[in-house]
Design a protein around this nucleic acid. Structure first.
Lengths: 254, 254
DNA sequence: CGGTAGATTGAGAGTCCTCAAGCTCTGTGG
DNA sequence: CCACAGAGCTTGAGGACTCTCAATCTACCG
């Protein structure tokens, strides 16, 4: 189904990280010129991946780490009979492939949900980064811990929330994250996921996901149309999910 | 239910990290004398926590990071109506509280499952660590990524494995981890968990957990007695869980 | 010897799953 | 311009897995 990424000369990512579109938003913590230059030197290319293709294969190991520059992606694992669990969704600014680097043999795949653009860094440059720029190393840990926090929440969701609560949770969570990186327009965010994606992220079947989604929609809580999501009653969703937003902070960007 | 930790002058942890019992095993990667001295200087005490008490509260924030020195613990989150999800189990050598440091407001509690001994480090010493000893910073990231890998697997478990597979998975996983840090004797490991713990870790009800556990036991796959676990047929468990051990590696120890 | 925590078992209910079919929309080819 | 195929969404029905309720049993403790 999913094939290896196709490296393409991309025009969507500027030549130098100084012009990086992401850094111009206030979503990411500023870095010094020296750090930025180091990041730029460390970067070993930009790749573009079509929607539905694997950025990192669940089977093979990579020698690269990526920062997602544009698009949506998700990390997943599958059982040998094909059951798939989406571990987490990835948005611009997220680090991709850090787990793989330290994987104790365990593996997860990363797939592009939309056409995506990523900045590639050599895995073995990571040590250099820690040594030369401890603050960037600190940032990497920051990002790892932050992702872990999201996984904590996902575990609580799949383990202890029922179907309705799970769906409410997912809508809130993705909306909030997209908003943080300015992927919001007219109160809507891009929502390029199929119901199968949602089901796989929540540990539900496709059919039950559909029925739950319908119910929330009939209740006037949300609307998904033309690949865009709008929350019509975030408050009610929060109460259903028992999940309340914390103010968004700036996060590091590699 | 769970109260704050009681700092006690402990005799179980030697005066200097040089004598650390854990470091004498081959489970952890060696560090230089300088690093060890730094770790020792950074350490701000040893605390002892009774079984069932919180090491880190789910509500309040800490200013400490710990390394679990002896005993079992677990990290958990709860919904406001009391439903609890155990995120991960913690064994000697595991870092405790790193998530909290970087928590974007999100919180999880850590509770001692047995009487436990922990080495405490000030949270704000972390930056110092990254700056003065990048290799230790690298290690911290290593540990964070490794825990994330475990969470990935847990998510796959709660999301996509059925009750039987989940229980098989948990038994294998805990057994393997305990074995790695030499908590094994005569082919058995300490298993201080109630069925409620198992249920909360797997996202199952207590009753169903019991029935599933019984079934596996009747099939002759495992035995839990007097707080100890023995795997009678690891191969069968592996096939049920669709989970196959990777060779254990040395991991960093802070 | 009562009291409590944890384990065990049965029974009935409910959530969620699988199977199956129909629908909408889009892109392709005749 | 329409037929057709494919992907994704929707809905109904029956069944399976898991949950809740409730009671019993054991071990341990003061």
């Amino acid at each position: 189904m999913a094939s290896p990424p196709i490296p393409i000369q991309s025009e969507t990512c500027p030549a130098h990280c100084r012009q990086c579109r992401l850094r111009k938003t206030d979503a990411f913590s500023p870095v010094t010129d020296g750090e930025l230059e180091f990041i730029y030197q460390l970067r070993k290319g930009v790749i573009q991946v079509e929607a539905g293709r694997d950025i990192i294969s669940e089977q093979k190991s990579t020698d690269k780490i990526y920062t997602l520059y544009a698009g949506w992606a998700f990390r997943y694992k599958t059982l040998s009979d094909g059951r798939r669990q989406i571990i987490n969704f990835l948005l611009p600014g997220d680090l991709v492939g850090l787990q793989e680097k330290f994987a104790d043999g365990a593996t997860s795949g990363v797939q592009a949900a939309t056409d995506a653009v990523l900045c590639a860094f050599p895995q073995d440059g990571l040590w250099e980064l820690f040594r030369n720029h401890p603050s960037l190393g600190y940032d990497v840990t920051w990002l790892a811990a932050r992702e872990e926090n999201m996984l904590d929440e996902n575990l609580l969701t799949t383990g202890r929330r029922n179907a309705t609560e799970r769906v409410a949770m997912l809508l809130l969570h993705l909306f909030r994250r997209a908003k943080r990186v300015s992927l919001i327009q007219d109160g809507e965010i891009d929502f390029p996921f199929s119901q199968q994606h949602i089901a796989d992220a929540l540990g539900l079947s496709l059919v039950h996901t559909n029925k739950t989604l319908r119910r929330l929609h009939r209740m006037g809580l949300h609307e998904i149309r033309d690949g865009r999501l709008r929350l019509l009653n975030p408050k009610a969703l929060q109460e259903i999910a028992d999940y309340y937003d914390k103010p968004a902070r700036q996060v590091p960007l590699l």
